[in-house]
Nucleic acid binder design. Sequence first.
DNA 1: CTGAAAGCGCTAACAT
DNA 2: ATGTTAGCGCTTTCAG
Lengths: 338, 338
Amino acid sequence: MTTIKDIAKAAGVSVTTVSRALNGYSDVNEKTRQKIIEISKELKYSPNTLARSLVMNKSKTIGLLISGLNRGSIKDNFTFEVLVGLNQYVGETDYDLVIFSTTSSKQREKTYSELCRERRVDGVIISGIRTDDPYLREVVDSEIPCVLIDIPIQSDSVGYVTTDNVQGVKKGVQHLIELGHRNIAMVNGHEYAFVSRQRLEGYYQAIEGAGIPINPKWVTNGDFEEKKAEEQALELLSTYPEISAILCASDLMAMGVIKAAKQLGKKVPEELSIVGYDDIILAEHITPALTTIAQDKVQMGFEAAKLLINMLENDNEPHTITLPTELKIRETTSTLRK
Amino acid sequence: MTTIKDIAKAAGVSVTTVSRALNGYSDVNEKTRQKIIEISKELKYSPNTLARSLVMNKSKTIGLLISGLNRGSIKDNFTFEVLVGLNQYVGETDYDLVIFSTTSSKQREKTYSELCRERRVDGVIISGIRTDDPYLREVVDSEIPCVLIDIPIQSDSVGYVTTDNVQGVKKGVQHLIELGHRNIAMVNGHEYAFVSRQRLEGYYQAIEGAGIPINPKWVTNGDFEEKKAEEQALELLSTYPEISAILCASDLMAMGVIKAAKQLGKKVPEELSIVGYDDIILAEHITPALTTIAQDKVQMGFEAAKLLINMLENDNEPHTITLPTELKIRETTSTLRK
DNA sequence: CTGAAAGCGCTAACAT
DNA sequence: ATGTTAGCGCTTTCAG
């Protein structure tokens, strides 16, 4: 494996000059540079980024702490789309992404900062972490630049990108209200997700905004799981048959709710309108196609990478980005049938 | 940032001893070791893997060369599932995955080996590459251990994991034949994919095995694209209305074919039976649910990682794994209607 | 414009 | 059982 030493020898110069020539410094004779470049090509030289990182104390590497890289996250490919966005932006830079595997048994034997420091990543992107995850506290305390996805925390070294969850749900609920619904329930995620709190807030705002009294019993948690949501909906709809519409905090849960409706012999959307959240691939392909609040997951990844690299290179002030959502009206919502 | 030097100073020993103590060497007094470990905790020491990699000449890092990390690959989440499998296995080891972003404009300015050597990866996993990709030749020539997904090439340093594509398609076609079909067309991928060649072979074997004459005109390429497959099917079905069944080399293409059938007013499966390949998430959720040849993509990723790390650590001989497929009979195939 | 020398943090002979 | 020394490949003062 060729090193700058080899090149120096071949060119009859010092390693210093080789280093400077290859890195485009100005204070090197253009002829010398050309010669060095030529020789380095002949010798098929590639710089050793490890050595460079060691001395420069930065690795041009971004760590990925992503919980959704497991079998359970395949159906809703939120994680993948974020990854695509990250990759898209990072691909245009000289950074690389390293995946910290946190699925394993050994996962919690290393603290967050150990993980980062060992690999000497310049920054980190975190997605799919719960608010009660011990790593989260560490992130805030740590000096390492970090961008969170869907967790609105910020400091000098941490920023975030998220979508406007309050507005999102509001749009969904208002759509139902416009269709004449007043008995609107909600199947939310769980209390350890920031987005769930925000989506609940959106629900309240929309309901109250329409002068409809809030019934806390009509709000339940489905843990973002299809099965759990199905069970919750089953109970909800049996106990309160007057419910005519349900807003779900994820499309997967909406699919569970559709199953519940089917079991109870309630036709969707004639007897029960359903709104999902996310706009996963499945949403438009199931029957009936799911009305949902779409968020651009690829964009989220893209912006997260952009934000982090900006923080790394320039240190711009506002480290936060909130993306809009879009209501996609499809076939699971219709006017209230008396 | 604490280094072993700091620890050495604090413990009153040499850096060598610290290094040995921390790395579990036997030739160090147990008391000294305990003291060193304690101090290293107090000082919140994390080893610098960069420095270690540099001197050991291995990085405990696996490079990922994956073409399907872009918007176009979201619908069929083949890539993601492979990634999940990779992550699952790698997570149990002390390796990390680094994603080489090849989506970018700068992508082809670096050769394969430059990419690998710069980051000093110990091995590489490649997926989604075409047979005419210049990287492929480099892989074979290169010394760097590599596992290919779905490309049956092997040497001392390269292995592969794939599924039994011949058998897979054979099962699909035989299923159609058992249903009474004889006029069976095929929408294949493209000539730059090994799997396409193999799947075509499976088609031939099954057709000939049943004593049905082969009609080359009934085999067409859809480039693994939904839209392209739709167009091809449209032409095929218009020109040869006697075709009663189509085997597709991917589920996405099968969805295109379904659209084509719809346009021509052909009912699926009553008037046209369709078999897909892959068993993507969508397959069982669309209406009618797609009969397809399933491959376990997560498993593929898992085995690929396992294989590579085995090659890295032990150098076992046979570097190849072929996984089985499974025919999933759903709603797009039925007995031939006269 | 170029070179000598130091050092990034770590491991690995080779003593002792 | 422990320390000394050298060196991995690179960048970066500091001199010249």
